[in-house]
Amino acid sequence: MKQVFGRTESLKDTAFHYCPGCGHSIIHRLVAETIDELNIKEKVIGVPPAGCAVLAYNYFDIDMGEAPHGRGAAVATGLKRSLPDRVVFTYQGDGDIAAIGTAETIHAANRGEKITAIFVNNGVYGMTGGQMAPTTIVGQISTTTPGGRNPDRDGIPIDLSEMLALANGSVYIERTSVDSPKNIIKTKKAIKKAFQVQMAGLGFSLVEILSPCPTNLKMSPVQASEWVSSTMTTQFPLKVIKDEAGNLGAAPPSE
């Protein structure tokens, strides 16, 4: 018998602090597996967010530099402009990338910064205790929308990925989910392609990943995953939103 699934090299041998059933740790694993498959562990620099994943550097065994809340794209811009041959990615939640960091993100995409954003959309502010996020869906109850998100008062969820697709400098944007084995496999493919787009020097790439937050949804992990499948995807359909990558097979492999 041979081992076909285990912990990948770019993850430290540390237990995740995330709640049971949290999508963050699945996404951490997929990013780390991608780093190892592309053999870029020694040339990748990650920018963790504020929020539940602020401790991402406890898990990734790669160089990481912390950005203030929302400023990931600006910090990544500085890192990448200084070291153009490294692979730079931000790991950001919905509040980080689609509320407080909207300007930094849109302008980095518009400049075509050769960086990759891993955008974890769980529809809620997790770390701070379940407040409304820019991506909280209409009617969804949060601690700051006790009667459910009301479009008249709160606006409707923001489709940041679609907005970013309008930017000239964005090359590849896909929305995926980690609600099922099939979608987890798709998510990893998307992350890999996003990194390859960057490595080929094509421009800005982003993968928006719908992710369950059982704790703040007040559901069991299995129910939370089902909620992502049945409800969240109606607001945020899973699809390739923009792909101008062309044939990446021709892209030079990493050293």
Partner: peptide, 17 residues
Amino acid sequence: ALCALVCPDIAIEVYRE
């Protein structure tokens, strides 16, 4: 490996012949 794929905590190792 479906179980390992969905496991958020990398608690599952999978072996195959």
